[in-house]
Design a protein around this nucleic acid. Sequence first.
DNA 1: AGTATTTCCGCAAGCGCTTGCGAGAGTGGG
DNA 2: CCCACTCTCGCAAGCGCTTGCGGAAATACT
Lengths: 334, 334
Amino acid sequence: MQLTLKDIARMVGVAESTVSRAINNKPGVGEDTKQKILSIAKQFNYRPNQLARGLANKQTNMIALFIAEMKSPSAIEIISSIEKAANQAGYQVILCNINHDLAKEKAYLELLDTNQVDGAIFAGGQLADEHLIKASLSGENKIILLNRLTEELLLPSVITDNSRGTYLATEHLITQGAQRIALLTDENESLIKEEKVSGYQKALEEHAIAYNQNLVIDSQGSREAGYHAFLELINLSDPPDAFLATNDLLTVGLVEAIKMGGYFIPLDFLLVGYGDNLLTSIFDPSLTVVKEPYQELGQKAVDFLTDSLAGKKLAEMIVVLDPVLKIRKSSIKN
Amino acid sequence: MQLTLKDIARMVGVAESTVSRAINNKPGVGEDTKQKILSIAKQFNYRPNQLARGLANKQTNMIALFIAEMKSPSAIEIISSIEKAANQAGYQVILCNINHDLAKEKAYLELLDTNQVDGAIFAGGQLADEHLIKASLSGENKIILLNRLTEELLLPSVITDNSRGTYLATEHLITQGAQRIALLTDENESLIKEEKVSGYQKALEEHAIAYNQNLVIDSQGSREAGYHAFLELINLSDPPDAFLATNDLLTVGLVEAIKMGGYFIPLDFLLVGYGDNLLTSIFDPSLTVVKEPYQELGQKAVDFLTDSLAGKKLAEMIVVLDPVLKIRKSSIKN
DNA sequence: AGTATTTCCGCAAGCGCTTGCGAGAGTGGG
DNA sequence: CCCACTCTCGCAAGCGCTTGCGGAAATACT
């Protein structure tokens, strides 16, 4: 059986409250008794019951991490950066894999209502915004959005500059000679998708290339979707000469389809993908990608959350981080 | 402010205990009052405070998931399968990314001592076995091992048949004409590594091929290690004609090095990797791999844990699942 | 020496929920 | 009509911890 405060109190011969104060390093306990308490506590390996503590304090030091799509290689970057930052800040993270399932999102939202977590970070996805709003307003639930846009900016958010990512990529492709650039988007991230499209359009405009609706394929954002997008595009009367896939799963599917079709990159098509991970290093030729600053995204989201849990007023409601274009071989015609 | 049992009790005009029993569907409360209670509770969206409940019940419905190496693509398979299974069983999972860091493992072990979780699953890794044993014996902490071997079988474990995986792979390579098969292992999983080596040796023996110590490279199991292993092997007086990499990071690094060296697969070397994920689909030529049954591993580990939390005697202490060899092009000389 | 402070510590209530026990009301059998 | 029983429900203690308040002891001040 676990030792309790009461046990320690009895052993030392003081009241529970004194032990509590000593353990938590609070004022109001003499130096000598404090030392005695601490030494006994350590000797018997006393561990405060966090449930009881949480009940009394109304905080759990746990946060929920909602992940829209776990299979994506970049998700793991986000997850581990958040785990790391949270851990350093003294929080545990509960993994909530939403998998684009509204029911799961709702179910996991209960964690907030039932006081099991102090706050939550929503990474990606675009489901059930009303629920989020309601959740964040109903309690004093602290919710941070990461790479997830809502209609109105009601929740603290940290995102990458999505239009800049596609802008950089598109412009790069154009300077490499591409004229008909296909854009593969993920309909699950509706608002973010719009930003990505707008960056793409801006680059086209600047180079006086007409926007062609046929070259923009909106899909489920999955690997299969990437695959099918290629099949659809290749059958156009005026097929693309370059591709820009806006997430890593789409990128993989697209590449698979290109290979299946017997085409070569960058010979037949130029290609810029998304996400920078193991894939890009192994892919031949090496992949040019838009890379998001995963580490910073996670860190910033946790900072937001811990600050707001600590009751601090946030200096800003949103922080926008820049993606970088990692130019490799897949987008260079040689 | 959150509604409490007391609030509901006052509204309905009964005692807290009655409300509690009604909510938890326990006997001892009349059908009509029960309905009245439930309807009011629903109407006001009452949510029991899980901390308080946990304190009274001595259980949290949370489990800790210890992951040795999160960057590995197969880790995500394990993680999501466990999250799914745990979720279905009514448990939340706390992500504990150990990252081969003993200090972090110890720190996260506190979750068990402080009653924040009901149990834990250790996936991979080979650190601090004494701590595990101590933790599992000290409290009634329920700990399950997944793909992690200990000296003595003290904890319920679910693993893949490691020697079978390397046996299958090695034999396959031999039948494809390989004579000097290099084996890349991960020293972090010491006991599992031994099994893998033994499967490799068994296949060699059966085909009367002498075991050559120089062809076995033990390393940190990282991508870099895979890369360097190749450099080391290629400089042997009698370099290998085939490679078997025993985890997915090693596989990636190895492939990178092979490409950097200007060699072609399967022309110059046959190759069998580990893990079956996005990589294998994108790699050209497609990778032959040993695939572990991630889904089943996770499910079984969770079953073990929930059974033992429910107080059931486990039918067996260990379950061993078979890996399968997915034969693709990288190991077929054509 | 007497009073005013300060320091140290214990008492007890409270966090929100569960549960053993017993009282009262209702039912049936003799 | 009375007793024995069953069904409902409330009382109160308890889970392990925190914290406001007040008392006692120790120190400071006139």
